[in-house]
Amino acid sequence: MKNINKTFLIIAMFFGLAILLNFVMGGFSFDVASLFYAKPTRWQGLISPYYYAVLVILCVNVVLSVSLALLNGFTGLFTMGHAGFMAIGAYTSASIVTFMLPTAPFFIQMIVGSLCAGTIAALIGFLIGVSSLRLNGDYLGMVTLGFSEIIRIMLLNIDAVGGARGMTDIPQYSNLGSVLLLAVIVILVIKRIRDGRLGRAMLAIKENEMAANMMGINPLAIKVKAFVISSFIAGVAGSFFAHSEGYLSTQTFTFVKSFEVIAMNVIGGLGSLSGAILGAGILTVLPEALRKVQDITGIDLRMIIYALTMILIMILRPQGLMGNREWKWLSSK
C-alpha cells in the first residue's frame, strides 16, 4: 500500500506545483484549471508565444519518443509508422470534438477526445500488429511504414476533415499545462510497465525470442500488447497536438515525422527511457536554438550544424547519448 501513496504523491506534487505556478503567473487567481485547458493566454503572460510553441511541441515529441521506446527500445520491434498512429489520434479527436461536441465544456472535450483518439489508434494498432508482427526486423519496419502512409493518404482524401487543405478551426483547449501533464504521466506509465512483469517479458523477447518462448512467454501476445499500448499513447499525443495547434494538415504526418521519432530514440540511446526523453529534447530544441546562431552569423548554418551534430553523435556515441543507462529517477532500482 505504501506505493499507491507514491503515485498519489507524484500527482499531488504536480498539482501543488501547478497551483504555485498559477499564483506566480496569474497574480493570485484561483482559476487553476485554466493552466491545463483553455487558450494559452495565461501561459503566454509568462513566456513568449515562440517559446510556448516550442515547449508544446517538445512535450508532444517526448510523449511520442517515449511511446516508441516501448516498441523499439524495450520490445525490439523496429517500426517506422509512428506518425500514422499520431495522425489517427489527431484526426479522430479533432473530428469528434468539432463535429459531435462543439459546445461541450473544454474538460469534457479533452477527456472524450483524447480517449477516443487513443482507443481508435490502439484498435488500428492492434489490427496492424496482428497482421504484421509475424514479420521480423526490417520487414516489420517496411510494413508499418507502408501502413502509416496508407493512413495518411486516406486522411488526405477525406473531404470532411479538410483533405489537402487541412483541417481548421479545431477547438484549442489543450495547452502547455496539459501536454506537460500528459508527458509526465506517460513517462511514469512507461517506466512502470518496463519495471513490471510485462516489461521484463518485453526485454526478454528483445534479447532472445527463442529463450523467452522456452520461459513460457508468448512472444506474439507480448508484441501485440506493446504495439497496442504504444499506438494508444501515440494517438493521445496526436489528440493533444491537434487541440493545441488548432490546425491539422496531413503534411505533418509524413514518414519524415516517423523517422524523426526514431532518430530521437537512437540519439538518446535505444533501450533507455531517459535516452528517449533526452533525444526528443535535443531534436526539438536544437533546430530552434540554432536560429539564434543564424542571427549572429548572418547566414543560415542551421541545417549544416544540425546535420553535423547528428553525424558526430553517430560516430562518437553509436550507442546513443545515454547508452542503456537511465537517469536515477527513471532507473528500475
Binding site: 521484463r200 526485454l203 526478454a204 534479447e207 532472445n208 527463442m210 529463450a211 523467452a212 533501450g271 542503456n324
Partner: peptide, 8 residues
C-alpha cells in the same frame, strides 16, 4: 549454446 537475456 547459452541463450540468456544478456542485458538483463
Amino acid at each position: 549454446n547459452i541463450r540468456l537475456f544478456k542485458e538483463l
